[in-house]
Amino acid sequence: MAIIIQITPKYEFKVPVYAKCISPDVFDGKGLEEISKLRVLEGNRNRTLGDLFDIKLKDKDDAETIIHLLGSFIKVREIGANMTRGKIIIDGDVGMHLGEGMSGGEIIVNGYADSWAGGAMKGGRIEIKGSAGDYIGAPYRGSKEGMRGGTIIVHGDAGREVGCLMMGGLIRIYGSVKHFVGIDMLDGTIVVHGDSAGKAGGGMRGGRIIICGYIPSILPTFTIEDIRPSVNIDGEKISGPFYRFIGDMADKGEGRLFISKNKNPHLSFYEKYL
């Protein structure tokens, strides 16, 4: 038998709160007393989870621990960091570095997720029902090891540099993305069902980016390879047709960039190079 742990903020946070401990791995096997005493940082001060949040436990007949966050967590960072199992459900907005480095389990956000959602994750699944900020799946500043595996699904729009330095896994955006989707990526797949603001795949050396919507232009360091009727992602077929580009040539890359042909008639001049 496991439990549902319900957490609500006691007040509106003015400074960032680092709550790495909000994770099923940490909560497992702990009582309310112990959970309330877990250490969090509010700005540069040491606090406990109980100082900042109301915590309730509910029993349930299920094998996995569920953490239910209720309210605005937009200032709360690193929720579910490094988690390997269990489930976190967030009803509200959530702060940066959600599920950073996670290798298993599931996070569902019924709201907006700030930047670095699923940063450098290795496995598991994150589903964001609203929009997301910048750097989805990207590593921490300065690090060169991005997302390695797992799935991130965003139902709304996403910001810049989605899948920066990505090394594996799948990112799926149903809305549109801003600049530099898949920058410096090495492997893995990014699917954008909406539009892209451009500069897709800058510096990419491997992997695939599929853009089903409009893109203003392709970087000059990409060359067109052929036109494909559809793309296959883990058995699912996305029908095109797509222009297939290879790049980024400036980095001797072999990444593949699929751009919808129908939505981008202004790119038809590439066909003469085929």
Partner: peptide
């Protein structure tokens, strides 16, 4: 400046005596 990813692994918070 070059290594933010080095710092994030190892953070010390303020105490009554020491600085963060």
């Amino acid at each position: 400046l070059l290594r933010p990813e080095d710092h994030i692994r190892d953070v010390e918070s303020k105490t009554l005596i020491t600085r963060s």
